[in-house]
Design a protein around this nucleic acid. Structure first.
Length: 479
RNA sequence: CUGGGUGUGGCGCAGCUGGUAGCGCGCUACCUUGGGGUGGUAGAGGCCGCAAGUUCAAGUCUUGUCACUCAGACCA
């Protein structure tokens, strides 16, 4: 990134001020704007189009795995939210509450959903009676509200868009399998669609979701060495089922509690895209979610035949790709910058000289190298170039993940890395949450991200207290 | 919640010890423009966050208040 020439002055360099760079990209790429309510953002058409592409891809994956979409109300009666003890304790501090309806004070306060476990449970109580009613594999796409103290566009907003899957199963094994399956689904999606590699694993007791027995997480690594909780999948056991009195009669005519899961990813993924792939010239989008995959820029468009040829190319490419032909009267240079800031993976330039040669110029957003290609096999060329964009940004992200993975085998080493080398730290842990607290305090914010599915044995003892180690934990700062 | 910063045309800002509200970008019109934000001419656009106070006079001083923002704490 450092050796690339910066073409757009309005974007702060990420080396100068990463937070400002992030905000600049959000604005210059026209992803979102601030609104009059703190922590609530306006997702602009270009940003929303990315979300729609994310939705379409994920939704198809969910449906392939047998899930159905539903829609639940956005209000939760306070008493309902309080039904499960851990859950209410976890969420109470950040709930928005409706106390007045029309002119009158409400008899019971209504919580604007921070998540919908309780609503799903209440419904499941009514529709699950027999083993024949299981499994229930529901998902909903909706907004939720969590009254955050510090907010940042996409990464942490008071209101955000997400999907939440809520499933009920006959057996513990089946539910646990579902929890893992959905985390795997997210992992595949991050890799294949978003071109983002990540660490996956299980949360420690301290970092688990309120009310969950087990929380699995996907943790991608941002460019500045800060991790992002990119998606979670929870196994609840029958805790909620008991709290909500959800029972079914099994094959042996016994009354049983079903086993539950939930899983979700949110618009935060757009933040992950920005901070994983972006550079000093703006956003870089993986082709699969880019609202515009090819920006077609006519050169000297007033000359006879140029626009006609551009339209012809657009028609040919549009059969297979999302193409935008910009025939506005902005200058070509302006257009170049514009689509670069917006992270359009591929630019196609067509001018009089190209037309004479029956060719055009393809420019990748990643390398910015110009290649002249024949118009005869333009579809294949574009396809190849888009695949190359995916390959390059994935490789780059993977490299970043590797570079920012550190190993600490002693307490001093841990503190040193936490201080001087932003990124993940692999280190052994005794299993005691006091050590988590201590490490967090001493480092000023490094927390356990997860216990990876594949653990290594770095040493025999906990990096913090020196007692026998139970697990290898990946630690890091998070958004 | 704690600490810092900022509120002045759409955006970014200047405005010194009070005295006729300015600049850049953007916007509109016309001209110009061949490969990285083309150049020019003309024009539109402001209760100086809000409320009190001091003063002949407040963008400027005082007090209060609200909002945004950054860094912490909190974050299922």
């Amino acid at each position: 990134m450092a050796n690339e020439k910066k073409m757009v002055e309005q974007i702060t360099s990420m080396d100068v001020d990463f937070a400002q760079w992030y905000t600049d990209v959000v604005k210059k790429a026209e992803l979102a704007d601030y609104s009059g309510v703190k922590g609530c953002m306006i997702i602009r058409p270009y940003g929303y189009a990315i979300w729609e592409n994310i939705q379409a891809d994920l939704d198809a994956r969910f449906k392939r795995l047998g899930h159905e979409n539903v829609y639940m109300p956005m209000f939760i009666p306070e008493s309902l939210l309080q039904r499960e003890k851990d859950h209410v304790e976890g969420f109470a501090p950040e709930c928005a509450v409706v106390t007045i309806g029309g002119q009158n004070k409400l008899a019971e306060r209504l919580i604007v959903r921070p998540t919908s476990e309780t609503l799903f449970c209440e419904h499941y109580k009514n529709i699950i009676h027999s083993y024949r009613d299981l499994p229930k594999l529901y998902n909903q796409w909706c907004n939720v509200v969590r009254w955050e103290k510090t907010t940042r566009p996409f990464l942490r907003t008071s209101e955000f868009l997400w999907q939440e899957g809520h499933t009920m199963h006959e057996t513990e094994a089946e539910a646990r399998e579902e929890t893992q399956r959905m985390l795997k689904c997210y992992e595949d999606f991050y890799r294949e669609t978003l071109a983002i590699p990540a660490v996956t694993g299980r949360k420690t007791e301290k970092e688990k979701f309120a009310g969950a027995l087990e929380t699995y997480t996907i943790e991608p690594m941002m460019h500045n060495g800060v991790a992002l909780q990119g998606g979670t999948s929870h196994y609840f056991g029958d805790g909620f089922a008991k709290a909500f009195d959800i029972t079914y009669t099994d094959r042996d005519n016994k009354v049983c509690y079903p086993h539950q899961t939930s899983w979700g990813v949110s618009t935060r993924m757009i933040g992950a895209l920005i901070m994983t792939h972006g550079d000093d010239n703006g956003l870089i989008l993986p082709p699969a979610v880019a609202p515009i995959q090819v920006a077609l820029i006519p050169v000297a468009q007033h000359k006879e035949g140029v626009l006609e040829k551009a339209r012809e190319i657009k028609d040919i490419l549009s059969a297979k790709f999302r193409v935008k032909l910009d025939d506005s009267d902005y200058s070509t240079g302006w257009k170049f910058s514009q689509y670069e800031m917006k992270g359009v993976p591929l630019r196609l330039e067509i001018g009089p000289r190209d037309i004479e040669n029956n060719s055009c110029v393809l420019v990748s957003r990643v390398s910015r190298e110009k290649t002249f290609v024949s118009l005869d096999n333009i579809v294949e060329e574009v396809e190849k170039a888009l695949r190359a964009v995916y390959d390059e940004i994935y490789a780059r992200a993977e490299n970043n993940l590797k570079e920012k993975m550190n190993i600490a085998t002693s307490y001093e080493e841990f503190l040193d890395i936490a201080e001087n080398r932003p990124g993940f730290i692999k280190a052994m842990w005794c299993g005691d949450s006091e050590c988590e607290d201590k490490l967090k305090d001493e480092t000023g914010g490094v927390k356990s991200r997860c216990i990876p599915f594949v653990e290594e044995k770095l040493s025999d003892v906990c990096v913090c207290c020196g007692k026998p180690a139970k697990h290898m934990v990946v630690w890091g700062r998070q958004y």
